[in-house]
């Protein structure tokens, strides 16, 4: 196996601060200047250390609120870790979370171009892929409809169809296997396998033990912000079952 490091986290913690509502505006700050700003902190992740190698497919599993999404957002660079933590990433990455990354005011066509472009495709490449993306998403008839009129399933299909053509070395898949109906899901999973899981580093976040079992080489188990286990998928899943 290729041992080149793809992602390395050392000592990564993430604390969210929620300041009380009376301090979010200037007016409130002035009126409440004599009050102390009560800041609540929530530790979402606690001192995570891990290494992911190039080409691996990694599962992330854990209960609600265990820090799965925070972890992927930190790995993808959307969130910045607390002071002292370090994220090293070799190559480009993108985070696929169905239905986000779209403007509801734009049409499917415009969203394909904007989204494709932010995912690293050139306009000329999108021109070429345009009908392929539409066909895959089964939305040919709605290409010039604003997506605010789309159902959530349609938006997910569109989002998925663009992402499989995107260019990046690392992909984060946050609960994307629930896309569409059965038939679409089958096709989508197959495309994902061909385009991503086979040859690039992929990180799959899912509640479904079936999905993790099927695709992942190794699995991260999170519980209340702590990394409990990182290794063999079978073992991680067994430990996960025990947690419940």
């Amino acid at each position: 196996m290729n041992k080149e490091i793809s992602i390395q986290l050392s000592n990564v913690s993430k604390t969210f601060r929620t300041s009380s509502k009376s301090f979010s505006t200037l007016r409130d700050r002035l009126i409440n200047f004599y009050k102390k700003n009560e800041v609540k902190t929530i530790k979402a992740l606690k001192e995570i250390n891990l290494e992911i190698h190039a080409g691996e497919t990694i599962g992330v599993i854990g209960r609600n609120g265990s820090g799965k999404s925070t972890l992927t957002k930190i790995m993808s660079g959307t969130f910045i870790p607390d002071r002292g933590g370090q994220v090293i990433k070799n190559g480009t990455s993108l985070l696929l979370n169905l239905g986000v990354g779209f403007s509801h005011e734009l049409t499917a066509r415009e969203n394909i171009y904007v989204n494709g472009s932010t995912l690293g495709l050139r306009i000329s490449e999108i021109d070429e892929l345009f009908y392929e993306i539409l066909e895959f998403s089964e939305l040919e008839d709605f290409k010039d409809t604003k997506i605010k009129y789309f159902s959530s399933g349609m938006i997910q299909r569109l989002s998925f169809s663009i992402a499989i053509f995107a260019k990046a070395d690392i992909i984060f898949l946050d609960e994307v296997f629930a896309v569409g109906d059965n038939k679409f899901r089958k096709k989508a999973t197959e495309a994902l396998k061909q385009n991503w899981l086979k040859n690039r580093t992929s990180i799959i976040v899912s509640h479904s033990t079936g999905v993790i079992k099927e695709h992942c080489d190794r699995t991260i188990l999170l519980h209340k912000g702590e990394l409990i286990f990182f290794g063999e998928t079978e073992k991680a899943l067994a430990m996960y079952e025990e947690l419940e």
Partner: peptide, 29 residues
Amino acid sequence: MGSNAANAQLTKKNRWERIWLLAKIEFKL
């Protein structure tokens, strides 16, 4: 930070055509 540099690279080569695309769409909207 390494991650940001890598991502900047991802979007750098098509930066200007993307800015123009977004500007056009916004104008049209």
